[in-house]
């Protein structure tokens, strides 16, 4: 699990921010602090900060999956929020003090990405 945290600064998130909106919300991702914009959902924040292949592992087959539709339909953005697993990250707005944890299988995440 700890291994993962190194990927926060991985060079390949899918999105980058535009505009000058400040990142004023402070939450925790896998135990490490992360700043978010007030307009972010958990999914949009992570799409700018982590490599997509480290978003989650499928509970069925174990392979990496990441957000697909961002409109609440596909359930590919499942993530643990404040202790509750399998929440749709695209529907949940970030909050100060929120604890987000990725659902990654032990030893299952390819760190090189």
């Amino acid at each position: 699990m700890n291994k993962l945290t190194t990927s926060f600064s991985a060079p390949f998130p899918l999105f980058r921010p535009i505009g000058d909106e400040p990142a004023e919300i402070l939450l925790e991702l896998d135990g490490k602090p992360l700043a978010a914009r007030a307009t972010d959902t958990v999914a949009s924040l992570l799409l700018r900060h982590i490599a997509p292949e480290t978003y989650r592992h499928s509970a069925v087959a174990g392979e990496p999956r990441a957000p697909l539709c961002l409109m609440g339909v596909c359930f590919e953005c499942l993530i643990e929020i404040d202790g509750q697993k399998n929440q749709q990250g695209c529907l949940v707005r970030v909050r100060d003090g929120m604890r987000v944890r990725r659902q990654i299988r032990e030893g299952g995440c390819d760190e090189q990405a």
Partner: peptide, 10 residues
Amino acid sequence: MLKTARSVPA
């Protein structure tokens, strides 16, 4: 992502 999170492909 563009409309709600002011973000574009990196």
